[in-house]
Simulated scan of single mutants.
Amino acid sequence: MAFVLFNLAAVAALVGIDQLIKLWAVQALQPVGAMPLIPHVVELRFVLNQGMAFSLLSGKQLFLIIATSAALLAVAYGLFFRSRGKRLQQAALVLVLGGGIGNLIDRVLNGEVVDYINLLFMRFAVFNFADICVCVGVALWVLVIFLDELHADDVAKEQ
């Protein structure tokens, strides 16, 4: 039970942080449009994104909601039923789930996602905290899979 409660609390914390930052962006950033964070490196720029990364599938809200919901259900299943005792995998899935839910809330309630981090030193999409959570979570998940494969190879060699 503690396992479930801890992971639920971690996901809720990430969703809460994401939603608070987005609320700030709507209230403080939207009126000014943009403000420097680190001059010539990163600015905070208010952008509403109707699609997913790089505005792909823009205007396909129903599809994005259904696809995201299905993916998040699979991630939640993995977190609560497949990752017990695997801390790195749990962290990866918590990040993906928290970030995914954060953006799904925007998409369901507003039909678009609030983005606000703009990298000035390279041409890249404007993104948000939830996007960072999802990307770091997926990268961590790939690392988990890679480490599991290495471990499986080591065990096979020992036999």
Rank of each mutant, 00 (worst) to 15 (best):
L20N: 02
V96W: 05
S55V: 03
A156D: 15
V41H: 07
D115R: 02
F129Q: 03
V136D: 02
Y116Q: 03
A25T: 01
A70T: 14
A71K: 03
L8Q: 07
G99P: 04
G102C: 03
F146V: 14
G33L: 13
R87V: 13
I101M: 08
K157F: 14
A25S: 05
T68P: 04
I105Q: 04
A25R: 00
G78H: 04
L95D: 08
I132H: 02
A74Y: 06
R82C: 11
L72M: 15
G102K: 01
L97F: 13
D154G: 04
N118L: 04
Q89T: 12
G78W: 08
C133N: 06
A10G: 09
V138M: 06
R107P: 00
L119Y: 06
A2Q: 09
F81H: 13
V114S: 02
A28E: 14
A125L: 03
F129H: 04
I65M: 10
F80Y: 13
N118I: 01
V114W: 04
V113I: 13
L72F: 05
L37Y: 12
H151P: 02
F6T: 15
G99D: 00
A152C: 07
G102N: 08
C133V: 00
D154P: 00
L5G: 10
F63S: 07
A53R: 06
I101K: 02
F54E: 02
Q19V: 04
A25H: 07
W141G: 14
L62Y: 09
W141D: 09
L150Q: 09
F3P: 10
C135I: 00
L97V: 01
F46I: 01
P31A: 02
F129R: 00
D153Q: 15
V113N: 11
M122I: 11
A25N: 01
V136Y: 09
V26R: 14
L14K: 02
L120R: 12
F146L: 15
F63Q: 08
V134S: 05
V134E: 06
A28Q: 14
A92G: 13
E43C: 07
E43N: 15
G33H: 06
F63E: 07
Y116W: 12
G137F: 07
L147S: 08
L140E: 05
L150S: 00
I117K: 00
I21F: 11
V15Y: 00
Q50W: 11
V4I: 15
G85R: 10
D106C: 09
V15C: 11
K22H: 08
V155S: 10
Q19R: 14
Q61L: 07
N49E: 05
L8K: 10
L143V: 15
N49D: 09
S58W: 05
V96I: 15
I66F: 15
G137S: 09
M122C: 07
C135K: 01
Q159G: 15
D148E: 15
Q19S: 05
I105H: 03
M52C: 12
F46C: 03
L72I: 08
V47Q: 11
L147Q: 12
P39D: 12
I38G: 09
V155H: 11
G85I: 08
V138I: 14
A125V: 03
A91N: 04
